[in-house]
Structures are given as structure tokens and as C-alpha cells.
Design a protein around this nucleic acid. Structure first.
Lengths: 337, 337
DNA sequence: CTGAAAGCGCTTACAG
DNA sequence: CTGAAAGCGCTTACAG
């Protein structure tokens, strides 16, 4: 390849006629502490600039035992929810001088396991993970090694681990209450088939709101499989339309909403005339659906920022476990009366 | 932090009672080549498993001078175009046993420069970059050092550098021809104000199609500033609607289309009755716009895969420069008659 | 104020 | 078949 050999501190040391230790000190701003003479400080900086020195972070990482790198594992980076989260995390991490390596787990345990292993081998200093179903062991394994982790979006209540999540119960609870207040009774929740806490809580929020209003007889939950989302959703909506037994639909995630909107559109369902709809998370498509969708909004920015902040604290040795729950808010549009 | 000390090959060597070299050999599958005795091979594998050994990639990277890491720089990871591209690149890189570190440049030269520097310091083995305007120097600097780079989406024609891009000329050329064939004459292009080749080519495709049809007098191009997209677009669409002098609009990127759709919707423009519209790249929102948008589609998957393939070849020492141009296709819907 | 040296965890020629 | 040793590019106690 004939690539030019990279300049190291050794080259600078030679150029200036001084030991590599000195070079390292001044390049790390320790010249005061180590009381390096002004003259040498100048010369070293000059040489570094002249030779266009770039520190080798890999060597530094090996020596220091820290890489200033965060491992980010999400379900799918191409899902806008996670893409936006990743962006916030990237920017926030940069403020602390961290870079991020990411991976998409596709909600698969084995993929997630191999991602964690790969990033661990790459010596990331900590993880921000949106964990998949049934993967508690992977996480608890990290936790038991005192490895810095913060879970985001989802978490495992049985595990003593940092997390930043939406108040998922509140999210559906308040959305359903809003629907009830508007006079809807036959309200159906469309959720993922999942044992993950965020989904359980969203379901619970729906159930409690219904029960509190004395609508337990109207409880109706449809569970969609993540891996079969479009076919499951298609059939589900077809049935709902045919049965004509629901007045309102609440979707429990962004992807579910989107998928549901396609099916509703295909069925030419009149919203909210025939069926009221409440979405989750927000998406440009919600704005162009007819009518613009009312949805439950997550504070993504805060979620990303908090995750990074907590992770950095952990990396710096904090022992206290943070559980951050963020408030959703319902963005009112016209997909319910 | 009291984290448990990580297991190294030294520990395995001690456990088995053998030198670290042997351990390294068998863990790297060189036991045949180095003719290590079967017995020791077994013992080493057993010890590695028992101690739950995980190789330190940082140490390996330092020694080998390669990190098996790709640096990916896009304009904005939260933009679905780039999010999807990132996903393809991630998956493809994984097949070659590479991980990816990403950064978002926000189309800013200085941000892009500091990203490149940071990733270079982290010793990435190569870059996949969607370069920003006026940042040729950064790229040519890498190229002149023989550093593996492949540009994606955009490139610099004056630079001898690998790229994978859309046939941008063809994209607008065929879309505009399609419009002309349908009888539209007053066709307006809404593009970014940019000197980047992909934009120039999209403009050229429009211009040539118009000229070839003898419509040079109808040429009309509006340039939007990236940093002011929503205000520029708002005003632009307002004027178009007021002037009532255009029959069809062609948008030159995904973000422009999306932004334009919001403005069209706000103005209650009847599409295609009042104005035909052709979008770029595809987006769920295009599907829910009334009517579903006709758009120019990029082969994203191929684009990502090709980039990785070429980059890996470069990393492995290939000298030949690849210029890949991919064909767009127009997805016909009903936003033009 | 400065330098020689150890060591982070690997890989890999070299010697036997 | 196996081991001792150098070295990747840094940081950092230690000694003077």
C-alpha cells in the first residue's frame, strides 16, 4: 500500500532532541504539572504541528485501559426512532469526547449477544442498549461485572441497572383516558407480542384506564409479532374493519402505527368517522395521513442526553443506579373527534 | 470500580503451562501451520472456554496495525436515507468482520474535518463518506496518503477516488421526460443550492430534458439553502402557488421533497390537478400524501453493499479505483396525471 | 526539569 | 513442536 508511515511521539522526540516522556507530557497538557521548560514546550508543539502529528488512540487506549468509546445497541438503526436517538447520543457523546460504535440487534437475542461480545472485545467503555426480549442474561452479565451500562427505551425491572425510559404506563393511560373523555368506549390496543417491560406497561396503562372507566368488558388487545408485523397487521386491521366492533385504535409503537396506517389506508377506513386512531412516537407519515394523526410523543432528545450523561457518570466510577422515567405527551390532531 | 480483571492470553498460558505464543497461535487457528500438538491445542481451547477468555481487539489492533473498523461519515444519521444506508453498511461490514463507527457532519466542513481526524486517530482502516460541499481538501488529503476511502452518494469528479453514486443525471432526466411525455411543459426543479456533483447532475438532467424537448424557455430552477430548508421552502412554495405559473414540480432530494410536501399541504394545493409532483428517494410520508407520490428511487441496498465491498478491497491493498454508478428508477404513483 | 524503563495485550519473526 | 523476545505507540511511576 505504500502508505506513509504515521508520525509518532518518537519522531517528535527525535526532532526536538528530547525524551518521549516529555513529548507525551506536553501533548497532554501536563507541562505545568511536570514543570517542563517553556522552551521545550514550544519546540514540541512546533514539531508536532510541523510533522502533522496525530495521536494514536489505539495505543493510548491500550495503555490507559479506556477507549473513550460508547457501544450503542438498538433494534434497528434505520428505524427513525432509533436513528434520531442515535443522533442525539452521538452529539452528546462528542461533548464528552466519546465516539460511538453502533449495532442493530433486530430484536434478536443471539445477534445482540454477538454485538455485545464484539463491542466488548473492542473495549468500549460502556454500553447504551435498547435491549431485546429474553436477553436479560446478557445484560445482567454485564451488570454483575460492574460494566457500565444504561438501558434505554426498554429495561428489566428485576435487574438493578440504570435505565432511561418513557413513563410507558402514563403514555397509554393518558391517551386512553383522553379517548374515553371524548366518549369512545370500544377502544382497542394494538401492541407487540412481547414480554418487555415497555410493552407490558403500555398494555397496563390501557387496561387500567379502561377499567377505571368501567369499560373492562370492552377490553380488547391485539398482539402483533415483530417479525411478522406487516402480515399480522394486515390481517388484524382487515378483521377490525370487517367486524366493525371498534370505535378507536391505539397503537403501541411507532412501527406498529406506521404499519397500521398502511392497512387502514388500504381498507379506505374513514378516520375518525369510522375509527379513531392514536399513534405512538411521531413520524412524518403521521402528518400526511388523512387526517393528521393524534399521537403519544416521547421526549427523544432528553432520553438520549440522559442516557449519555448517566453512562459517563458510571464510566467515571459512580456507583449509584439511576432510573429515569420521562413523561410522554399527547399531541392532539384530528384523528379522533 | 472493582471490575474483574480481564483474562488475557497470559492467564491461559499460565493455566495450561505453556508460552503465550502457543496460545496466540491456537486461538488464531494457526495450530496446523505451527504444528502444535493436539494435546496442547485441546487444553488451550478448554482453558480459554473455562476462563471465558475474550481477546482484546485493541491490543491486537495496535500490534497488527489494523482495527477492522470502518469510519462512516454521513450528513445526518437521523435522516432516513442515511439511516437506511448505515444499516446496509453495518450488515455488510459485519460479513467481513468489520464494525462501524459513525459520525454526522451536518453538511459542515469543519465538523466533517474533525470527524475524520477523530476517526483517523481511532485508526479506522478506511472511510465511507458522503462528503459535504467544499470539503474536497479533506478527501484529497486522505487519497494522497493512499488511505482507503470510498465516497457514497456524492463525490468529486476532479478527484481520483472511489465512489458509489446514483446516475443523478439520469434520475432527473428520465423523471422530467416522463412528465413531458405526459404533456407537462412548465416544469420546475426544486434543488439545493450546492456545488456538489450529485446536485449539479440532477440539475443538468432536468435542464437537458427540458432543452431536448424545446422547453428551454420554461426552464425554472429554485435553489434552497440546506441550513434554511424549511423557511426557504415555505416561501418558495407560497410563491409558486400564488404565481400559478408552474404545472409540475420535481424535488431533487428526499429532505426537499418532504419539506415541500409540508408546504404544499399547508397551501392546500391540489395534486396533481393544480400541480404535479415528483419526489426523490422514497419515504413513508410519500405514501400517505394525497395522492401517493410518484418518485425517483435510489437503489440504497446496492449502494451500501458496493461501498463496503470496494472499501474492503482497498483496505486489502487493491490499487484500482472504482467508479460505480447505479441506475435510478421512477416509481409511478398518482401525483402526476 | 528530564530520561530510562516498564507495561497495556497482543502477534510474529527467530532460534532451537 | 515450543519458547523467549521484540515491538505496535502510548502513559506514567520512578529516579535523579
Amino acid at each position: 500500500m505504500m502508505r506513509k508511515k504515521k508520525i509518532s511521539i518518537k519522531d517528535i522526540a527525535k526532532e526536538v532532541g528530547v525524551s518521549i516522556a516529555l513529548v507525551s507530557y506536553v501533548l497532554n497538557g501536563l507541562e505545568k504539572e511536570k514543570r517542563v521548560s517553556q522552551e521545550i514546550v514550544q519546540k514540541i508543539h512546533a514539531a508536532a504541528k510541523e510533522l502533522n502529528y496525530q495521536p494514536n488512540q489505539i495505543a493510548r487506549s491500550l495503555r490507559r485501559g479506556a477507549t473513550n468509546t460508547i457501544g450503542l445497541i438498538v433494534a434497528d438503526i434505520s428505524n427513525p426512532f432509533f436513528g434520531q436517538l442515535a443522533r442525539v447520543i452521538e452529539d452528546e457523546a462528542a461533548k464528552y469526547n466519546y465516539t460511538v460504535i453502533f449495532g442493530s440487534s433486530d430484536e434478536s437475542c443471539s445477534k445482540s449477544a454477538s454485538l455485545i461480545e464484539a463491542l466488548l472485545n473492542r473495549q468500549v467503555d460502556g454500553f447504551i442498549i435498547s435491549p431485546s426480549e429474553n436477553c436479560v442474561d446478557q445484560i445482567s452479565n454485564l451488570v454483575s461485572k460492574d460494566f457500565p451500562v444504561v438501558l434505554v427505551d426498554r429495561y428489566f425491572p428485576e435487574l438493578e441497572v440504570n435505565y432511561v425510559a418513557l413513563d410507558n404506563f402514563q403514555a397509554t393511560y393518558s391517551a386512553v383516558n383522553m379517548l374515553i373523555a371524548k366518549g369512545y368506549k370500544k377502544i382497542k390496543l394494538i401492541a407487540y407480542k412481547s414480554s418487555l417491560i415497555h410493552m407490558k406497561e403500555r398494555v397496563r396503562g390501557y387496561v387500567e384506564a379502561m377499567q377505571k372507566a368501567g369499560l373492562q368488558k370492552e377490553l380488547s388487545i391485539k398482539e402483533i409479532r415483530y417479525s411478522q408485523i406487516s402480515s399480522d397487521m394486515g390481517k388484524t386491521i382487515d378483521v377490525i374493519v370487517e367486524d366493525n366492533a371498534s370505535e378507536a385504535l391505539v397503537f403501541a409503537t411507532n412501527a406498529l402505527t406506521l404499519s397500521g396506517l398502511y392497512a387502514l389506508k388500504r381498507n379506505n377506513v374513514e378516520v375518525p368517522g369510522k375509527l379513531a386512531v392514536v399513534g405512538f412516537d411521531g413520524h412524518e407519515a403521521f402528518d400526511f395521513f388523512q387526517p393528521p394523526l393524534t399521537y403519544i410523543k416521547q421526549p427523544l432528545e432528553e432520553m438520549g442526553k440522559e442516557s449519555v450523561k448517566i453512562l459517563i457518570e458510571q464510566i467515571q466510577g459512580s456507583k449509584k443506579i439511576a432510573h429515569i422515567t420521562l413523561k410522554p405527551n399527547v399531541v392532539m390532531r384530528t384523528s379522533c373527534r
